[in-house]
Design a protein around this nucleic acid. Structure first.
Length: 813
RNA sequence: GCGUCAGUGGUGGAACGGUAGACACGCUACCUUGAGGGGGUAGUGCCCUAGUGGUGUGGAGGUUCAAAUCCUCUCUGACGCACCA
């Protein structure tokens, strides 16, 4: 019978369902592996990126199951989010209906790929039971003051009608719709991720060698820790008077306290309270005021692209060390969101300060020696710096900070680029933020026993505003504290909140889902995730948030885990004609059609064979055919097998080709643990199996064939599970899939060893030697064989690499 | 500008510092088939005077008996960050 993938695949998918083959043990006694591929958004259909992601994860899960681990390999749905609402607006379907029917369809698609997911642990993040626990966490975070509500300038996407977190702004545009982001002042809920910035940064060390370097560096840069000095500039008396006595001083931050004697001006952001005061009280010339307002209305990105621009504010401050009076300017390069929105400017040793000072003819004073031109930003000795003159600038930094601390004028401090995570979204299809606004009690969290605060279903979604705002019976409620009339919060949580803790939900036994959010004992057993697989695009967003949530939930007592994802594999994109597959470009391949035509095993084999997982995968129709051909060949060779167990083979009785075939088979077996545990180079493991099959084909010993298939099917089962299980069933009653296979070293013992003879570093000839040959014998044979190239030469050095080669270093004699 | 990663045949890609190009795709020739498809055999980095020849892993140096691999510089590309004081 010839290879019929659809029949075989349906048969085994049903059988696996019946056998409940992929559920982890409830008992937490065996060694465990938690294998997780990032869960999908239920967009409607699977794409090739999903196939790649889940093929990789499934290979790990099946491999470790065969190594006798208790394996948790779950799947779920990242189900809240804008596309559901957009679909509702476009097609008039309710987001809930749209989402759950997409899930039903995509579940079937995943099933057709033969992925070994636990079926009992599946959930969607829009399930009310999931929302319930999430809301509990949010309330606990509020109680611990990790969640707060505040009105600030936020990133606003007009297209999506919602606020965006800093991490969701890419090159000044919305991460989802690419619309330009605007600035807007409005209230919102924030998670104090900065409180965990140090731990998030330090613990990156624990991930070295286990996460891609690139991701670690990106996170480290994003957190952006810098250490320096924070001190106050006292305003001059005249300036205090000008500000109506409302301000005495303001704080600045610098990472270069060693240059403090070179300060020639100070600059404030357009949004700084002092700048604002001057604007609001008409203290500035009208055209200057207009220009400053114009700057304030620009996004950070626009300002970054603009030329340096600033205006003197007619104020002065006192230099804390020299008591000089220093002019205060406002400048478009000073960011309101960092370091208090005010800087000391040292044009001699900072490029921005220099550019600005040059443009506005402000004085420039060198205080660090070195180099010829200004600005000079490298190391050097201090000059013209009072008692610190002559010190190296590195040493001076520490001394100046110490001096400020002693005198109480300032202190050493740390600043982060990381901003607190804004989690409120003005959208319907998300988890409601479980708070109530009460006239007398203020902001009040819901009572835990009232959770979940579920979304009302009777809403009309038009795209104009948040439907929760227009739903009186939902919006109007009683205050959980005083019982008076109150208004429910209508903002919902960022969808990244749901994906920040799903790894803990899977680890909690579904039997407890009604009564427990995260089971501590089970979380401690299953986590960290032993292998996490997903796209590089989450390097900052999801992976940073999930690390943060893990630490917060730990501190709230839900578990004792520090890092959620032990090992991370970031898969490359799937490309067609060099470009990312996308509907808009029309260069997609439909996984359903692929499975229909060739079967799931071919789809999986191709995606794992065509490129190593971390690299981009270029689509190639002919290579898919090639993968199909290999499976077909493997299937056809079942007739070569003569025994239904692993045979004992007398190596001595075999011909040369059979011996070589055994070598290839055992080389593949040896490679397998390396691939799963270290290199992840599935492509080379598949290549090794192809070599083994090619070598088996060159001989006809039934026992060698039986042994070869027994082992190869075991190795290939994680990759092409249907056909490998089918053949294993027919040939070996699946005994080969239960066994942990051992390498037989005697297979590698050869009667003769081929040595390459190199003369002067060039390959010249080969010699065949007995494995017991001494070094002298090998050298003698090499010299004889290479006599032709040794003529007129004298040997200066002789190298013998056992079982590999001889290198004779020569020079003309 | 800064950071990370990567540059190997026509293509995807292999190579503990030890025979560069495994494996696969494509291509060429031949065999099988009525054709197509499928299968099989042989060949396939480049150059030449065709050899047990020369050369070859973006480029230039270096370390080594030996370098795609290690070091220095440089070029190119991808991704990320980007006035962070």
């Amino acid at each position: 019978m010839s290879y019929n993938p659809s029949e075989i695949e349906a048969k085994w998918q049903n059988k696996w369902d019946d056998e409940k083959a992929f559920e982890p043990d409830d008992a937490l006694t065996r060694k465990k592996k938690y294998i997780l591929s990032m869960f999908p958004f239920p967009s409607g259909r699977l794409h090739m990126g999903h196939v790649r992601n889940y093929a990789i994860g499934d290979a790990f899960a099946r491999y470790y199951r065969k190594q006798n681990f208790n394996v948790l390999h779950p799947i779920g749905w990242d189900a809240f989010g804008m596309p559901a609402e957009n679909a509702a607006i476009k097609h008039g379907r309710h987001p809930k209906d749209w989402t759950y029917s997409n899930i039903d369809y995509m579940r079937k698609e995943l099933n057709a790929l033969g992925l070994s997911f636990s079926k009992t642990r599946e959930f969607a993040t829009c399930d009310e039971l999931y929302t319930k626990w999430e809301q509990e966490f949010i309330i606990k975070m509020f109680e611990e003051k990790l969640l707060y509500r505040e009105s600030t300038t936020v990133n606003w996407c007009e297209d999506c009608h919602t606020v965006l977190a800093n991490e969701q702004v890419e090159e000044g545009c919305c991460w989802r719709c690419d619309n330009e982001v605007q600035l807007k002042e409005m209230p919102g809920y924030y998670l104090d991720i900065i409180k965990y910035a140090d731990e998030l940064l330090d613990d990156l060390k624990l991930l070295e060698g286990k996460w891609p370097n690139q991701v670690i560096t990106m996170q480290s840069n994003w957190i952006g820790k810098s250490q320096g000095l924070e001190f106050d500039f006292e305003l001059s008396e005249a300036s205090k008077a000008k500000l109506g006595g409302n301000f005495d001083k303001y704080t600045v931050f610098t990472t270069r306290p060693d240059t403090i004697y070179g300060v020639t001006y100070s600059a404030l952001a357009a949004e700084h309270p002092i700048t604002k005061y001057l604007l609001e009280h008409g203290q500035l010339d009208e055209d200057v005021a207009q220009k400053i307002t114009h700057i304030a209305n620009m996004t950070e990105r626009e300002r970054a692209q603009a030329d340096k621009e600033g205006y003197a504010l007619g104020l002065t401050v006192i230099h804390p060390l020299t008591n000089e009076e220093i002019p205060v300017w406002t400048a478009n390069f000073v960011l309101a969101s960092y370091g208090g929105g005010a800087v000391m400017a040292v044009p001699a040793h900072d490029e921005r300060d220099f550019e600005f000072a040059s443009k506005y003819e402000l004085p420039i004073k060198r205080v660090i020696s070195g180099g010829e031109e200004l600005p000079y930003t490298l190391e050097g000795e201090l000059i013209d710096s009072a008692a610190f003159t002559g010190l190296g600038n590195y040493q001076a930094k520490a001394k100046i900070i110490a001096m400020f601390e002693e005198t109480g004028f300032g202190k050493g401090t740390t600043n982060f680029k990381l901003r607190n995570w804004g989690v409120s979204r003005q959208r319907y299809w998300g988890a409601p933020i479980p708070f109530v606004h009460c006239k007398s009690c203020g902001l009040v969290p819901e009572k835990i026993e009232n959770l979940p605060i579920a979304l009302p279903e009777d809403v009309e979604i038009t795209g104009e505003g948040n439907p929760l705002e227009n739903h009186p019976t939902w919006k109007n409620c009683a205050c959980p504290k005083c019982g008076e009339d109150a208004i429910r919060e209508t903002d919902t949580l960022d969808t990244f909140v749901q994906s920040s803790w799903y790894q803990f939900r899977y680890a909690t036994n579904p039997k407890k889902w009604e009564t427990t959010g995260i089971d501590k004992e089970e979380a401690n057993y299953w986590l960290g995730v032993d292998q996490y697989i997903g796209g590089i695009e989450h390097a900052i967003l999801h992976l940073l948030y999930a690390r943060f949530f893990t630490k917060v939930l730990r501190d709230l007592g839900y578990h004792d885990i520090d890092e959620p994802f032990e090992n991370l594999l970031t898969q490359g994109m799937v490309l067609m004609d060099g470009a990312k597959m996308s509907k808009s470009k029309g260069n997609t391949v439909d996984p359903d059609a692929l499975v229909e035509k060739y079967g799931a095993d071919t789809a999986r084999l191709f995606t794992l064979f065509a490129a190593p997982p971390a690299k981009e995968l270029e689509w190639n129709d002919s290579a898919v055919e090639g993968a199909f051909r290999f499976i077909k060949k493997l299937y056809d060779r079942k007739d070569k097998v003569t025994q239904n167990t692993l045979p004992d083979i007398d190596q001595g009785s075999l011909g040369k080709e059979s011996k070589l075939a055994r070598v290839k088979v055992y080389e593949a077996l040896q490679k397998s643990s390396d691939v799963y545990e270290k290199t992840f180079a599935f492509n080379t493991l598949i290549a090794a199996c192809m070599e083994a099959l090619n070598a088996l084909d060159k001989q006809d010993d039934g026992a060698v064939w039986s042994e070869g298939m027994y082992i190869m099917l075991n190795l290939l089962e994680p990759i092409i599970p249907h056909v490998a299980t089918e053949l294993s069933e027919v040939l070996f009653e699946r005994k080969n899939l239960q066994a942990v296979l051992e390498v037989k070293e005697e297979v590698f013992v050869q009667e003769s060893v081929l040595y390459v003879v190199m003369i002067g570093g060039k390959k010249r000839t080969e010699i065949e030697m007995s494995p017991s040959a001494t070094q002298d014998e090998i050298l003698a044979a090499a010299k004889e064989a290479g006599a032709k190239w040794l003529e007129g030469m004298s040997i200066v050095k002789e190298i013998v690499v056992p079982n590999k080669l001889v290198n004779l270093a020569v020079k003309p004699s």
